[in-house]
Amino acid sequence: MKFINKKKILHYIQKNPGRSRTEISKALSISKPTISKLVDELINEGWFREKESSSSSPSGGRRAFQIYFNHNAKYIVGVDIGGTSVEMAVMNLKGDFKEKVVLSTQEHLSKDLVQIIADNINSLITKSSLENSQIIGAGIGVPGITDVEKGIVFDAPSLGWKHYHLVEKLDNLLPFPVYVDNDVNVAALGEQWKGAGKDKRNILQITLGTGVGCGMIINGQLYRGSSFAAGEIGYMVTDKHAAEEAYDSIFSGYGFLDSHIGGPSITKRMLKHLRTGDEESDDWPAKRIFESAIAGDKNALNIVDDALSHLAFALINVISIVNPECVIIGGGLSKSMHHFLPEIMSTIDKHLPIETSVTITKLDNVSVLGAAYLVLKEHESILQV
């Protein structure tokens, strides 16, 4: 009971800084002597700091002491392993970065990528002037289906990992706990912690890049499914007739929706229209095609409209099942989506009577933040959320 009460007090002050012991007692319905004793313990342990109020009490007595959470009591590490780059950072409990580094994934993949990640984490901790004992743990986001309980990456095509024992390898290299999850799930956690999903309990995170992914937070917690494959909407079929016919699967293992709205699929259709070869794909990234569509290029506009039609119908299907408070669109292609969001919403509103907010992410470093927040979600301690 003592641990539970200390945890209640800690989380209350995290959300309501500057409260007095009396205010905490009233808010949590815990006796004032108990509150005072536990607050003193939390101060001695470094979780809280107190500051004398600038005003006297209403009765004219001595000034109360206000209690604040110490965001620098401990630190966490967030790592986002992407097909193109690996981003990692050390941050405090508020999500403020101490140090950050970005590496090229493909450049280090042929070497020992996990060892390189561990070396860089240790380097970041040293540069932050911290000790390992101050680190609660590291959270890792991986682009693939991941068994979060065993720490095994079942399949990450862009990394060439199959049944890869990631946590076991990192446990041998790092002196603190390591937690791992799918990259879209950690992006959803980032939005829940610091972005458009803050203070919301039912969130859909859609990421648009090479393919399309979906992270689901239901009743405040990640929903991962029976085999950790919930949200793999890249396999969703949004056109029965097109699915029954032969269509180009962009990469082995990618699904129908991936092959119609992913960046490489948009590029491939543009090159096909222009009748140019794949060697020119670097000249026509999806971002350029979106820009051409916005500028009024009819061919680019037709290609983008078709892709966004598939996206809109996919959102209709998922929203109708999950009934989220908000849908947040992120990933590399999201930066090109603002101009087309009204069109997507028009299609959704036409077919779906459920009112749902759909927004483009505004949060930088969302996956790194989410990976760090994964530690706070999974690590069993007084901080666990």
Rank of each mutant, 00 (worst) to 15 (best):
F3I: 11
N5Y: 13
K8P: 00
K8R: 15
I9Q: 07
Q14N: 10
K15G: 08
P17D: 12
E23T: 12
S29P: 10
E41T: 14
E41V: 12
E41Q: 13
L42Q: 03
E45F: 08
E45H: 07
R49M: 03
K51R: 11
E52S: 12
S53G: 03
S53A: 14
F69A: 14
Y75D: 09
V79C: 07
D80Y: 10
M91D: 07
N92Y: 00
K94A: 14
V101N: 09
V101Y: 04
L103N: 04
L103M: 13
D112G: 06
D112S: 04
D119E: 11
D119M: 07
I121L: 05
S133W: 05
Q134L: 06
Q134V: 00
G144S: 09
K150Y: 07
G151R: 04
I152F: 13
V153F: 11
P157Y: 04
W161I: 07
H163F: 09
L166Y: 02
E168G: 03
D171I: 02
N172C: 10
N172E: 14
N172L: 14
V180N: 01
D183Q: 02
V186Y: 12
A187W: 03
E191P: 06
W193F: 10
K200W: 01
R201C: 09
G209F: 05
G215N: 07
I218N: 13
I218C: 11
N219F: 05
G220V: 02
Q221Y: 08
G225A: 12
S227L: 13
Y235V: 12
T238P: 01
D239I: 03
K240F: 13
K240T: 15
A242V: 12
A243H: 15
A246D: 13
Y247M: 01
Y247K: 11
S249N: 01
I250A: 08
G253L: 13
Y254W: 08
L257M: 10
D258F: 06
S259K: 06
M270G: 10
H273I: 12
E280C: 04
K287T: 13
K287R: 14
S292R: 12
G296C: 04
K298P: 00
N299L: 06
N302F: 06
D305Q: 14
D305Y: 10
L311F: 10
A312S: 15
I316F: 01
I319S: 04
S320Y: 11
I321N: 15
I321H: 12
V327C: 11
I329V: 14
G331S: 04
G331F: 02
M337V: 06
H338K: 15
H339V: 03
F340G: 06
I344R: 06
I348S: 02
D349K: 14
L352T: 09
T356V: 15
L363K: 12
V368Q: 02
V368N: 02
G370F: 02
Y373W: 12
E378V: 10
L383W: 09
